[in-house]
Write a protein that binds this DNA or RNA. Structure first.
Lengths: 215, 215, 215, 215
DNA sequence: CATGAATGAGAGTTCATTCAT
DNA sequence: AATGAATGAACTCTCATTCAT
């Protein structure tokens, strides 16, 4: 039964890659890429270091594989969700937070891994640096399109620049995810606060008078 | 003049420590703590690796020293600014963003170093992990006091929990700082967007006028 | 028909061994034994690493097998050629160069493999070291017998020691083969030069040419 | 006394580099480059692996350093010896053998290292492959110039091509050196045989006059 | 027969750290 | 006060080898 055998092997292979990837996601999110050793990853799935090199040719390639997965799972479905026709820009931005937080809770590691790597490789121009930048650029693009469209329809304040709004959304989102992992925090509450803030600001609204100048 | 000489030596010592610290701040912010080698730090100030051990007993102690500096410069003055009697909670939160961004632009490295370390050592319980948690806890405490006080005075929505508001503020602030460093972004614009969002939300509110119905 | 099947299997087995050996010869000659991996050898014949262990119990045994082949093909036929009764010692030495060069051109890998291994394992006393020494000793013995016989018949200068003449022949021959592979060189020209040198030296002698008959 | 100290350190450095290089020369000649580990080299001089990286940034760089030394000591002085005005081409070729054998006996490792590396890296185009080819090309060039000049003066047979004569000289020389190391052989006798062969061939010629003294 | 998964010993390399000077 | 030499532990990576299928 060669087909069965082949199938079994393929399964095994997929399973091993899967387990190694999951372990790597977790460890990288917990300790960072540089502080995570292949030894730890291997041990986490009950293999030896050498096994990693059977599936990935280097530590860097393993990480690139994780980025592929994360991009696929997160950015792709994000784009799919947010580029649909319906909904206002604000709806979509809120959806972005919800989406992220959903991932952050159900599948936290892929999302956090992207954030972690974007921080660790912020200023590097090697393969990983380029890859993570490309991934983030996709996110920025999706958001900026939403914002532009919203602005056209008058759903957003005209005096706030697109690029900086997108950055604010990403910054808040990533910061929120990190914060969620930094403290033991009620994720749902956190999202609710962020959503509220983004929708209404923190100000008590029926505002008595126009301009309260800060500072 | 042994005293004079001693004085001179002390000065020299301070100067060396100062220069090493600055270099370390920059490199850690750019590359992360784990990816920064003592070699690089030493070279950046024209010394050799060995010299660092004359001033700091280990790489870890060097980092702890940086954390001391950063706490002193940032958290202390932050607390001083924000615990003053005047101003509403919102004013102070806005000031928090401004304060951070000011530091982020004038003396970016100390602030970013705190953020970087809080991410790299998020889940560690060694000396550094404990230290960075302690520093962040001070920040949370300051913010939560402000928020509580504001809530008492009715300046903040009652349905948003203090802890999560503080987390949102910190998350947004840290995310914003990282974002500022991740992209080439106009820092002032970014702050303005964040401030606006926090104050008013992104929603187009029934601004005072529109309501005026025709006729 | 189990016998037929068995026969077929045996054939297949021989064929696989044959192909692996050829690939190994080539790769070892090109890169050296240590720098050649079983992976490469397997790939060169479209197998996997593991398959090699079905035919050879170790990399070392594979090499020993190659040495067997090379000894069989080269040293045996060399001995057969050179120990025949006819011809002077000089004829036979020339034949040695020709023989070598013939192998070197038609079947270069076996011969070069011997040379390569004799260099890589010169100073080792493991199985391979002993084997290659034994093979070379056979060659020396054949040559020394020829030389001794020639000396008896007065065909060779008396003042040159047998052992060193044999070494010179081997040295020149091996050096020539390596050189032939090191540069892009016209093999036939090279052999001609070597033969001429060995027969007449490089000195311009009042050559016996006199044969030119008068008139 | 900073100068003394500096001097001492410089001495120490030179000494360590020297010792490491010598050990590396020997081991590479005995076992080949690939089969020699940095561990062994370090142990041979009573250091640890790490020390090697203090002086050389990689195993490859260490080898390149050895090649520099060897080129300097051998090829340079070879060129100096052989490009002098006096002497016939034959004298110089004989001198080449003598020179080589002198090096081979007094400082055998540098010369043998060149030969060894030329064999191990014959077919590679990395930094080492290029380096060793460049070194050999210098040798060929020197020899070919000598041969050409000799041919002009009628000192060499006209029917033998320059390139192949040079190759024969190099091949014989290298082969001789390897042979010298392969067997326990009387080096002087070996050189004498080679010299005689090159001058007169192995044929018993009606020697015109007894002694044409080489050198 | 042959594969592909996995191992484990050991290689080259990095880097914080020590220490004599 | 500072250097440069050297260490040693830990890392990434390689490769011959084993084995279930």
């Amino acid at each position: 039964m060669p087909p069965r055998k082949a199938a079994k092997n393929a399964e095994l292979r997929e399973d091993s890659i899967q387990r190694l990837s999951q372990a790597a996601f977790q460890l990288i999110v917990m300790k960072g890429y540089h502080a995570t050793t292949l030894q730890e990853i291997a041990e986490a799935v009950g293999m030896t270091k050498g096994a990693i090199f059977f599936y990935f040719t280097s530590k860097e390639r393993l990480l690139l594989h994780l980025l592929d997965i994360a991009e696929d799972h997160i950015v792709n479905s994000l784009a799919a969700h947010l580029t649909s026709a319906e909904g206002t820009a604000l709806d979509k931005i809120v959806a972005y937070f919800h989406f992220g937080s959903w991932h952050g809770i159900e599948r936290p590691y892929e999302l956090l891994c992207l954030i972690q790597i974007s921080i660790e490789f912020r200023h590097r121009s090697d393969a990983i640096g380029k890859r993570i930048v490309a991934i983030y650029n996709r996110i920025y693009r999706v958001l900026e399109e939403i914002i532009e469209a919203g602005r056209m329809r008058g759903e957003l304040p005209k005096d706030l620049p697109t690029r900086e709004i997108a950055s604010t959304v990403v910054a808040t989102h990533d910061g929120m995810m990190l914060e969620y992992h930094r403290r033991e925090i009620d994720g749902e509450k956190l999202v609710r606060v962020v959503r509220t803030v983004f929708l209404q600001g923190l100000g008590l609204k029926p505002r008595p008078k126009p301009i309260r100048r800060a500072r």
